[in-house]
Design a protein around this nucleic acid. Structure first.
Length: 536
RNA sequence: GGCGGCAUAGCCAAGCGGUAAGGCAGAGGUCUGCAAAACCUUUAUACCUCGGUUCAAUUCCGAGUGCCGCCUCCA
């Protein structure tokens, strides 16, 4: 990271080889990355969220590792499903696609998914697609039949290298009726003759529109060149989509198309694949209605990107609690800093340490010596944590492991801070450790994981209330309190007077009555705070 | 039918040849008049079953069971 030029080793599980490979980009400092985007015909679901958050983190990590990443993520804005939707809603195809592109962008913004370097639309790349199809025909890799152009799968000897299938087996396993027109049922459309009323473009084969697979090849080559480093997408795209992309691209250029193929696992609902066709999908919005977007991100990060995730509201709830713990740690640090500035916590230099005859300084047990703890319990280097973090991320983007490193660190910083608060002093070495730890925590969580972007104090105040979720129902945020803020303040004041006079029974009575109205009190050193926790 | 993946504590989930990260929940403790919140500590007699390889297997190999995915649009 901050070591100039020296980049951490990164191993990537490559679908081509089904094994982890050391990442070596084509250009020394630049990474060319393409990720298949959405077909814009409906709201995004949490499966899309996982895919794009996965690649968002990969994108962020590669940048943090010192690479200049050129990231392209496309929009498919011409396609059967969009045409169907347009017909149903009696709108133009363009109206439908642009609407859902807008909605998608809103979702991605909400999820703090960074915009790629380029977001091309298929319809903006038609000439390039026609060029590819034409040349493929010239080279004998494709053929035209009545205005349709098909890729001749048998002309590409490596067909199946990505999905690890072979053509003969695929034909043997045939389950769908063969299109009589095609030479081989595996042959796929590069160009489709358009029907009446459908959007169409002029081509050497008459009016038509592009096939799906050729879009990505054309857009990838247009923006990134003929050979790129990383191409990603959901694991359902391996076959046939990505397989077809390889076939047409490599036939077209005669060069290797992609060096590293990365595929993310699926989001399941009740152990079953979630998909639009199964109609069991949950939209990004459904989730964001009830949970903080960062909770969703963390939820995904707790699992390796290649594993499937079984989605559940309980799972996000759990991730939400974890997120709160992270915010709490930063908040605690902020409080400590404030106390040191106000000189309410003294900063001691190592020299004046230990009058209590502690054990050998730095080597002493860093755990367990509560209370005394003047012996340098810390000067441990933050480097160890940073190294572990980068090792984990460099090991096929193992976010689950990387996150655990952060939690380890958080436990450590919490302990140091709490001890300091209890003793009213902190050793300078410990403070320096805390400072560097927080810089690292904030960088890793915010810049790489894309979380922890809220003000800690505000976040904690607004998220501490137990979520009152119920599957399939909206209304997590509990009912509002049955009492006004003004009245609450009045009662708190009254109660604190009673407490001052040690009339605890009466004070507790007020607290109880507020609780019944959905207000929870918290006595702190700086006064009494209240939270609307709702009536259960 | 072909190909592939997964099976780790109450739940989620890393690890993958030398005897188990992390999170949530639970329990105990610190703090507090008591609470709440926070923090700390703690929680797997062996990681689906049975065989095999090995000095050593949760980790490798084989078989079995269960769940899931791809082979059709799909992140």
């Amino acid at each position: 990271m901050d070591k100039k030029n020296k980049k951490p080793d990164i191993k990537i599980f490559n679908t081509l080889s089904l094994s982890k490979e050391l990442f070596k980009p084509i250009n020394e400092d630049k990474v060319l990355m393409y990720v298949c985007g959405i077909t814009a015909y409906d709201l995004s679901h949490i499966g899309h969220a996982r895919a794009y958050i996965t690649f968002d983190i990969i994108y962020r990590f590669l940048k943090s590792a010192g690479y200049n990443v050129i990231y392209v993520r496309n929009f498919t804005d011409i396609d059967d499903k969009i045409i169907k939707k347009a017909n149903e809603e009696k709108k133009t195809v363009e109206a439908v696609s642009s609407k859902y592109i807008d909605e998608y962008r809103k979702d991605m913004d909400a999820l703090n998914v960074l915009s790629p370097s380029y977001e091309p639309k298929a319809t903006e790349t038609i000439p390039e697609m026609i060029e590819v199809a034409s040349k493929l025909i010239d080279k004998g890799n494709a053929y035209e039949i009545n205005g349709d152009v098909f890729f001749r799968v048998n002309s590409f000897k490596d067909y199946g290298k990505l999905s690890h299938k072979n053509i003969d087996e695929l034909i043997a396993g045939l389950r769908i009726p063969v299109n009589e027109e095609k030479e081989n049922f595996l042959d796929f459309a590069l160009w489709k003759k358009s029907k009446e009323g459908e959007p169409s473009w002029n081509s050497p084969w008459g009016k038509g529109r592009p096939g799906w697979h050729i879009e990505c090849s054309a857009m990838s080559m247009k923006f990134l060149g003929e050979s790129i480093d990383i191409h990603g997408g959901g694991s359902d795209l391996i076959f046939p989509h990505h397989e077809n992309e390889i076939a047409q691209s490599e036939s077209y250029t005669g060069k290797n198309f992609v060096n590293y193929w990365i595929h993310n696992g699926f989001v399941n609902i009740n152990s079953e694949k979630m998909s639009k066709s199964l109609k069991n999908f949950i939209t990004v919005r459904d989730v964001l209605e009830k949970f903080h977007p960062e909770a969703l991100r963390l939820f995904f990060m707790f699992t390796h990107y290649r594993s499937f995730i079984d989605f559940s509201y309980e799972g996000i709830e759990s991730a939400g609690q974890s997120l709160l713990r992270l915010y709490q740690a930063v908040n605690l640090y902020n409080e400590l800093k404030k106390l040191t500035y106000e000189k309410r916590i003294e900063i001691k230099d190592a020299k004046e340490k230990d009058t209590s005859g502690g054990t050998a300084g730095g080597a002493s047990t860093e755990d367990g010596n509560k209370g005394t703890a003047v012996s340098g319990k810390n000067p441990e280097s933050i480097e160890r944590y940073i190294a572990q973090f980068y090792d984990s991320m460099g090991d096929d983007f193992n976010t689950a492991k990387a996150v655990s490193v952060i939690f380890d660190l958080v436990r450590k910083t919490n302990k140091i801070i709490k001890d300091a608060m209890a003793q009213n002093f902190i050793e300078r070495a410990d403070l320096l450790f805390l400072d560097s730890a927080m810089v690292f925590i904030k960088h890793s969580l915010s810049d790489i994981f894309g979380i922890l972007n809220e003000d800690p104090k505000l976040f904690i105040e607004s998220n501490s209330a137990p979520a009152n979720y119920e599957y399939g129902k909206s209304g997590v945020s509990a009912a509002a309190a049955a009492i006004s803020g003004e009245e609450i303040e009045k009662l708190i004041k009254r109660r604190n007077e009673l407490r001052k006079n040690k009339e605890y029974a009466a004070a507790d009575e007020i607290r109880k009555s507020l609780l019944e109205k959905g207000v929870t009190l918290e006595d702190t050193n700086f006064g009494t705070a209240y939270k609307i926790t709702g009536i259960n």
